[in-house]
Design a protein around this nucleic acid. Structure first.
Length: 504
RNA sequence: GCCCCGUUAGUGUAGUGGCCUAACACGUCUCCCUUUCAAGGAGAAGAUCACCGGUUCGAAUCCGGUACGGGGUACCA
């Protein structure tokens, strides 16, 4: 067992609230959480809101909601505080300023008054000359007097980190192994913007150190800037954490997953009727596996078996079909009580939001729902499907397509005859229980000398309005004699009017 | 352009030098069960392990190159 998975790890998820929390980000948070729980450490939530231009207040809420929904609880965070509060970077500005002062004092960093316009001009020239773009470190040669002059004139001043002109930097990544970079390719980079806010590079380094973070788990897009982060750690005299760069999640076209690929936020999956444990399970498997063929796992099992060493190096494509399957598996594994609890809110939503028709009175009869659930339990792939599969049990009227009533292998005239016979039987059959009903109807089929199909299909369509439904006699029994007979009579009328229409 | 990372069936993964005539799962197809739809069961198709070369008695596994894909190259994170 390696140290990284045996000693308590302090991990952090540090999203920037600039939009909907992406499913890729959620997976990173999942790995953070998993490592912390696995090792008996702590999971910290920190909001990195240093980009004032892109800040969105709602984004922060969606981050919190997403993590909560998936059960990724944090031990320290902006809402609950902790020993290193505050956990929002815009409230920790003095801390970054202190570090900047130290870096300035030691000569590791310097102030630079190069304006954005000058930078743009430089870029244009490099582009025209065909040379690699990048800052030319001109600020290194500015004198203190020059900077003061610019400051007095109100010009923007930034602080840049000085990068060595030559040499290489190697670091070990848990996922990639040893990664090596050449300093000569890196330019002096900004650690403090002219608005006084730190850049990500500085802020997260200071916070990770100050908060005692042991493992930085983040997307692989951060690999190229890791040398900067190590440089800052070293200049401040700090050890740097263990880096775990996880592969990206791609859409079906192999580009970075985005809104174009359909539901991209965790909350959309919630709204579509996915179980948090299924999404949890699925996301864990996107870039990690326990090492054998086990796929369906509970949260606890995943915590049990998780290790950062087994995180894959290559990106994965998000396969929504497999998620759908896995969701069905998890739904089938739910106890009836649990299922009922999750499904009731769906059914009782407004019709426009995917609930039962508004004509159905709320609250629903719990006992009735409870009785129906077993009929559809194993058929559900999402929670939301419950509305459609149970709707005909609740509405007054169902509207079958007349052409669908006879079924594929029969015709309206035959179906009419069968429905009439069925009506007679239904009038008197007793008890009105599934088993007895089935026995009686099978006997009727024999008497009529037909297979069950042509007899049962018209009943099913008449009663449920659909060719696809739960087992017929459970359904008939649950709906009750009177309503079943009403619906069959209505179907007979439909067949009659349709017949006369085609004859005319 | 330059730098970094990656590459096993359509997809997710297993595989860490001989057990690989490459396994499992999703998806697809066929059949069984069956009143429909699911679920379940049995099977099938689908991969020259990106390509080329090297190391080795032996390579999906190690090394090099090429191709392709992705990422980075901001006073975004």
């Amino acid at each position: 067992m390696t140290p990284s998975s045996s000693s308590p790890a302090r991990t952090r998820f540090a999203p920037s609230p600039t939009g909907m929390l992406h499913i890729g980000g959620v997976r990173t948070a999942l790995y953070d959480w998993l490592l912390a729980r696995k090792t008996g450490g702590q999971f910290v939530l920190r909001i990195e809101d240093t980009d004032r231009g892109r800040y969105e207040a709602e984004a922060e809420q969606s981050i919190v909601d997403s993590l909560r929904w998936l059960g990724l609880d944090w031990d320290e965070g902006p809402d609950i505080g902790g020993p290193h509060a505050p956990y929002t970077q815009s409230q920790r500005l003095e801390l970054y300023q202190d570090s900047v002062k130290k870096l300035l004092a030691s000569g590791a960093a310097y102030e630079d008054d190069t304006t954005p316009e000058e930078l743009e001009e430089l870029r244009q020239r490099q582009k025209a000359a065909g040379t690699p773009p990048g800052y030319d470190n001109r600020g290194r040669h500015k004198t203190a007097e020059q900077i003061e002059e610019s400051r007095a004139k109100g010009l923007p001043i930034v602080v840049r980190m000085k990068v060595p002109d030559s040499g290489t930097l190697k670091f070990d990544d848990v996922v990639r192994g040893q990664v090596e970079f050449d300093f000569s390719l890196l330019q002096d980079f900004i650690i403090m913007k002219s608005d006084g806010y730190p850049t990500y590079h500085l802020a997260h380094v200071v916070d990770d150190h100050e908060m005692g973070i042991t493992h930085v788990i983040r997307g692989e897009e951060w690999i190229p800037s890791t040398p900067r982060h190590i440089l800052i750690h070293q200049a401040l005299g700090w050890d740097y954490p263990t880096y775990v760069h996880v592969p990206l999640i791609l859409g079906s076209d192999r580009s970075k997953l985005s809104k174009r690929h359909g539901a991209a936020s965790a909350l959309e999956y919630r709204d579509q009727g996915y179980l948090p444990e299924a999404v949890f399970n699925f996301l864990a498997l996107l870039g990690w596996s326990p090492g054998d063929d086990t796929e369906v796992m509970s949260r606890d099992e995943i915590v049990q078996r998780f290790s950062v060493e087994r995180i894959l190096q290559h990106p994965a494509i998000f396969d929504s079909e497999k998620l759908l399957w896995l969701n069905g598996v998890h739904i089938r594994g739910l106890a009836l009580d649990d299922l009922q609890e999750r499904v009731l809110p769906v059914l009782e939503r407004a019709e426009a939001d995917g609930g039962l028709p508004d004509s159905v009175a709320r609250p629903l009869n719990r006992d009735y729902v409870r009785k129906l659930l077993p009929l559809v339990h194993e058929r559900l792939k999402t929670l939301n499907e419950v509305t459609e599969s149970l709707s005909f049990f609740f509405v007054d009227d169902v509207n079958p397509d007349p052409e669908a009533i006879p079924g594929r292998k029969s015709d309206p005239a035959t179906a009419t005859g069968y429905l009439q016979k069925s009506l007679e039987l239904l009038k008197t059959v007793e008890p009105f229980e599934p088993e007895h009903l089935e026995a009686e109807f099978r006997a009727l089929a024999e008497k009529l000398d037909v297979k069950p199909g042509p007899l049962f299909t018209p009943i099913r369509v008449a009663v449920t309005g659909s060719t696809m439904a739960p087992p017929l006699f459970d359904t008939v029994s649950a709906i009750g004699r009177d309503r079943v007979m009403e619906r069959i009579e209505k179907a007979l009328q439909l067949l009659a009017t349709q017949g006369s229409a085609t004859n005319a």
